[in-house]
Each structure stands twice: as C-alpha cells, then as structure tokens.
Design a protein around this nucleic acid. Structure first.
Lengths: 212, 212
DNA sequence: CCTAAAATATACCGTTTGGTATAGAAATAT
DNA sequence: ATATTTCTATACCAAACGGTATATTTTAGG
C-alpha cells in the first residue's frame, strides 16, 4: 500500500486524467532520475530503484519492461528539464547574442537545480554509453544534435539580421559552445569549484561578444 | 602455464630486472586498460578482466588486492600515456603559443592511438567517479590539476617573455582550454565525427592565437 | 456496492557478481 | 640440484544481480 503523492512529479506537468499506472510511472522516473544521473546506468541497481521509490521490483516491472526502459525514460525526463528551462529563457530574448548568452548564464549555475543532481545528463550519458549502450547513446546523440541545431539557427538568424559576422561558421560556433559548457561541467564537478565554471563561462561570454 | 610476452607492455618502460609478478602486473594493467576506459569501473567485471588477460581470478588477485587497485593502476597508466606524449611534444617547442597549440594538435586525433581506446581517461573517470568512487575521483582531480598547472606555467612564462598579453588570466586560459578539448572529445566520440573535433580544436587554435 | 480489470507485492529463479582458501606450478637464491 | 619462496590455477563461497510467475490488493466502471 504505497501512497503516491500527486502533482509533485513530472515537474508540474501533471495531466488531470492520468491513470494510476501513468502516475506511478512518472513517480518512478522522478525518483530514480537523480540516481541514474549520479551512478550511471551500469552503476544503478534494481535495489537502488526500489529504495528510492519505496516500491517493489514487481511494481516497477509492471510499469517498465526492464532497466533499460526506465533509464531511457529517465534520460528524456532529465534532458527535458534543462532544455525546456533554456528554451523558455531564450524565448524572452530577441538579439542573437543575448540568446546565445543564455547558455553561459544557465550553465554557470552547475551546483543549483536542476543541474545539482549529478550534473549534466547529456554529458554523463554520452560518456558512459558511447561504448556500451546503443539506446542511451542514441538519446544523448539526439540531445546534442538538437542543441547544435538550436544554436546554429540562432547564429544564422543573427547573421541574416546583420548582428553577427557573416564569415562565421555557425556549426563551429555551436560545437564550440557545447564543448565549452560540457567540459566546464566536468571540471567544475570534479574540482568542486563554482569559480572554475564561472571562469569558463566567462570565456564563453567573451567569445560570444566577439562574434561581430 | 601462461606465457607473458616481454617488452610490449608499459609502452616500452620495461625494466630489465622486473620479477615475474611485476611483469604480470604490468601485463594485467595493459590488457585491461582499454576495457576500463570503455566500460567504466562499474561496467567492467572480473570476467572481463580474465578474458582480456587470459589469466584467472586467482592470478589477478594474487597481484592486486581488489578491482579498485587495478582500476587505479589502470588510470595512472592511461593518464601517463597521454601526458607523456603531450609533454614530449611540448618540450620540442620554445614559444608559449606553440606549446599551447600542442594540446589542440594532440587532441585533434581523437580517433587515433592512444585516444582511440575509449577516449580520454580523465574525462571518462571524472564523469563516472565524481559521485561514486572517491579514489578514482582523486586520481582524475590530480590529473586535471596537473594539466592546469602545466598550462598556467606556459602562459605565465609567455607573459614574462612579452609573448602574451599581461592582462590575461592564466588560470582562466588553462581551464577554458581543458574544457574545450574534453568537451570536444565527448562530442566527437558521441557523434562519431572527426570533423566536429577538428572544428572545436580550430576554435581553440584561434583562441590561442589571439592571446596577444 | 459489486465486479472485472488493472496495478502492486510476495516469493522465487538462475546467473553473475566480487572475492578467497588452498593446492599446485614455476621462478629464484643458495 | 634442491629448497624455499613466489606466483598461478582450481574450486568454491555468499551476496547481489536482473528478471518473473503468481498471488493479492487497489482502482475504476456499471
């Protein structure tokens, strides 16, 4: 007899006519997300999942076919959290440079939510899965490609608006930005240094400001 | 009756008076290094280690106390490989900028040895261990700090020689460079794109050239 | 309120996990 | 050449692993 609280999971995206199973599924995803992000796919056991949720194996496997399915759903959840936050903030800005600066501002806060629960899910998943788990690798790939496409679009629009230098290579700008903040997260989490991240994001800021 | 070939392991650092155990230890490290770097610490089993070496558990545990000790030794081995290669190349250059460019040149070759066996050990270890394995985390931390100190020294010397702008923040340059190539490796390995890495390293090259 | 369906808990499965005691083989010093 | 030490293989262990069949409970519709 497990009581599932309503409305705290899926970060507010609770639909009113969710079935019990749908709610439990969302609950499992929410509760195991930080575990998977910290310990990784191979490092997270079913026991970790049952203790995090308070549910039994039977209950979890009644909602998901196996560990892989939970991990894939968890990745979607983790990625959606950061990407929707970034997207919302970008929508508020009009100029290309301002839109690009959102990334620097967002990732400066590596130790605050939603990044505090194990860092960037894209980085963690990419590094673990690239040689071991095709399904998770594909998810991470799509995430990076969506960021890349997003940044490229902003840069191209900036060039069209004469805001940015037309000799820029939008793809190069995009990849460099992503490398900077992902590498920055790795360093900041490892050295437990907010300052390190701020320095790296400051470099990114300067880089963006020089895109004239 | 396992025949251990002599002289192929420890990348040529074979000492003439190595005991059998020392040779076997080096052999185990060499053979399991790519496995640990690809599958991670949690993802690598003792079975993986016995098949990779052709040795039995008893033999491995006669030379190492446990899996942790092998993993720590493997990290040292992996890191030494890249850092000695970088160090040797840097020693050949005289100017600060040229020394810094070694990093861009070296990491442009992500898909060639010694980086082909699972990417950068520092990145992989940092991402996996930062929330799970204190021993490995410490090793990765020391590795990043040694890179950082190395770059800072080059930048400071470049400033002293009037090669580089004296308003530069050497620590910021160091952290930004490390973030760029580590983030780049993550992206290149994930997207399986040499071009992506070259674009990112090209950005790093431009950044270095603008340190006037 | 009752019933059928859906969701959860219990109890179990075979396999793999990391690790070890001990016996046997090989290397080394005398 | 032999004795002793060092190293490796065999065989085993308990615990944890991912997963499942089945019984029980809970939910939701009529």
């Amino acid at each position: 007899m497990q009581i599932i609280p309503i409305g705290i999971y899926l970060f507010g995206q609770l639909k009113i006519n969710m079935s019990k199973a749908e709610r439990t599924k969302a609950y499992i995803i929410e509760k195991t997300a930080p575990i998977f992000n910290k310990k990784g796919f191979a490092g997270t056991s079913l026991a970790d999942m049952t203790t995090a949720t308070g549910l039994t194996k039977g209950s979890i496997y009644g909602n998901f076919a196996n560990k892989d399915e939970v991990a894939l759903a968890v990745f979607d959840y983790n990625f959606k959290r950061v990407s929707s936050a970034i997207g919302q903030e970008m929508a508020k800005r009009t100029k290309a440079k301002e839109k690009l600066l959102v990334f620097a501002e967002f990732y400066s806060q590596v130790f605050e939510p939603p990044l505090d629960a194990g860092g960037c899910a894209v980085l963690n998943t990419a590094v673990e899965a690239d040689d071991t788990h095709a399904g998770l690798k594909k998810k991470a790939t799509q995430a990076v490609l969506s960021w890349k496409a997003n940044i490229i679009q902003v840069v191209e629009q900036g060039i069209a608006n004469k805001e940015l230098n037309e000799t820029l290579n939008p793809e190069q700008v995009a990849l460099t930005m992503i490398a900077l903040f992902e590498g920055g997260i790795m360093i900041a989490k490892l050295l437990e240094s907010k300052t390190a991240m701020q320095m790296i994001m400051d470099s990114m800021r300067k880089m963006i400001e020089e895109l004239n």
